[in-house]
């Protein structure tokens, strides 16, 4: 006789048959960080805990990491990220692409990269913000960029 067959079903919550065990949020975050920027953001739409983790202030550290990953998928519309960890300066998300070159040279923005961000921000207006991210739209209205809003955390 199968002893498991004797077990009353109502007493203990029986684990529902699942495709996989539930991973802790920090592990899911580690995985998501390696799946590229877009997938990382999509993960935030799966549950609240992941969204909190992804939009936490230390996303400021994740974005540079995703951007510098060879496999990291950074959307082409992500132009810059603000490095709040050390210097509060902008870094290019795609340092070696033609877009980046145009952005730097044609738009005379090179002086602002790796420097304070106040002047550069004047060229953009915020579209929406949530958690630690602000979506900015360039006043001409083509490119977009994401940056962590450091102000809230530092204040």
């Amino acid at each position: 006789m199968d002893p498991r067959g004797m077990r009353p079903t109502a007493t203990a919550p029986t684990p529902t048959p699942s495709p996989a065990s539930e991973l802790p949020t920090d592990v899911l975050l580690e995985i998501a960080m390696r799946a590229g920027f877009v997938t990382l953001l999509r993960c935030g739409a799966t549950c609240k805990a992941l969204r909190r983790a992804i939009h936490a202030p230390y996303l400021a550290y994740l974005v540079p990491r995703v951007c510098s990953d060879r496999d990291g998928v950074v959307p082409t519309r992500l132009l810059l990220y603000l490095d709040t960890g050390t210097s509060s300066s902008f870094s290019l998300a795609h340092p070696s692409t033609p877009d980046a070159a145009v952005f730097l040279v044609d738009d005379h923005l090179a002086p602002f990269v790796s420097r304070g961000a106040a002047d550069l921000l004047a060229m953009y207006h915020p579209v929406t913000s949530r958690g630690s991210l602000v979506l900015l739209e360039r006043n001409r209205g083509v490119e977009e960029m994401w940056m962590p809003s450091s102000a809230r955390r530092r204040g």
């Binding site: 996989a20 899911l28 995985i31 998501a32 997938t39 999509r42 549950c47």
Partner: peptide
């Protein structure tokens, strides 16, 4: 991460057993 790449939030929930 290869199982996660390019998936929709619904698909990610399913593969990783995440409760919405």
């Amino acid at each position: 991460s290869e199982m996660m790449k390019g998936k929709s939030p619904d698909q990610i929930r399913e593969v990783f057993n995440i409760k919405n």
